[in-house]
Design a protein around this nucleic acid. Sequence first.
DNA 1: ACCTGAACACCGTTCAAGT
DNA 2: ACCTGAACACCGTTCAAGT
Lengths: 232, 232
Amino acid sequence: MPPLPPPRAPRRKRTTSKRPPLTPDAVVAAALDVLSAPGFAGLSMRDVAEHLGVGTAAVYAQVTSKDELLELVYDALVGRIALPAPDPARWRDQVHQILGDLVTVLAAYPDATLAGFGRIPTSANILRGAECLCALLRAGGISDLAIALGLDQLILHVQACALEVSVYQRTMSPEELGRYLQEVHDYYLALPAVTYPVLASIAPDMIGHDAASRFRFGIDAILTGLAAGPGH
Amino acid sequence: MPPLPPPRAPRRKRTTSKRPPLTPDAVVAAALDVLSAPGFAGLSMRDVAEHLGVGTAAVYAQVTSKDELLELVYDALVGRIALPAPDPARWRDQVHQILGDLVTVLAAYPDATLAGFGRIPTSANILRGAECLCALLRAGGISDLAIALGLDQLILHVQACALEVSVYQRTMSPEELGRYLQEVHDYYLALPAVTYPVLASIAPDMIGHDAASRFRFGIDAILTGLAAGPGH
DNA sequence: ACCTGAACACCGTTCAAGT
DNA sequence: ACCTGAACACCGTTCAAGT
């Protein structure tokens, strides 16, 4: 027979009381936690469930598949990046800022980045981001047709760069990366000029540009091309 | 007691004679076969082994990991694309040709495409392809520095487009894709102009451009940007 | 209604043991 | 030397059954 609680003593809620029901947002938050864990290698639905203290099947009551979860994660990630008010005088820098932030965020979550391919965004955060980017391009004098065609290409490019950076970050330390790049550079320098004349001759120009500055250069090239308009 | 073979009768080689030893090339060929099978969804080392009629562990005697195998597959795929002799009068079309072929090939093998991120190529076919591409860019009057910085960006862009196309190809039929794009277009057209003024206003410009023409536009933009040189 | 346990049909990779 | 069998430690997803 359990003792009755003393009169007027505050009755603690049973900590084993029914947990609040799961929600898709809670699942997304758990996925972000799991993906941010140091040394992670790919999201697993089981890990998400464990993080929530719940059976795996319970997760499937909130999201229909891992792929859908990763799409939601992608949207949440875009929600983290700051969207500036377009300033025609600084539009180009603003584009670099916003896309640079996007690369940084996506590079930390390659699984989510992968889920972004082949899906045209309709979720709130991504739409807001796209609107901002379009406004910046228009502020830069780029034609509506070039924006309509180029928006997609710009995002694809960002995603590709994010995947590239993510591989570097996951598979090697900054020192290892430096050594690797040095090795590759030496290899290109030593290429036989008979079979690879151009490749060998541009090798000296390859050194000294990190991923960030090559990315900046790539985005700049696309922006210049968009400004030139469709039909070269 | 088995009967002796009749005198002078040709002795058939036992069909169960020792198979020729496995080679990395044989493994790559098997991987390409498996990946080309209709309705495939991701390469598995077990499938490769089965295709070779061999235990799974035997594959690991030829390639150290699935990732290495996919890198070899990538190189083999690049070996399939035709490399034109650079003609300064047609360099731009030649670049479109070669990169268009690359997208087509890679889109059919997304697993291999993924293995291309974060790895600077040193294999024969890819080096040959890179040399050709560099020669074309130089024939187009693009500076060595812009080539050194832009080559990487161009390839990343191609890989991103290939991934995009691969998702469309794998998850829907051409008719389904058409319907999907129509739906998305309608969705963008109906976007509230208060929150998404630019996005809503460019929606009409979004229709009527398939992945191939958007890709061509993107590559064109990059080429124009590279020709403008580094430092916008 | 919401969740658990357990299963189904897979993975990449390794390793002792065979021939 | 080259390969097999079998295991280890995982996956995404489903579904009957519990509360």
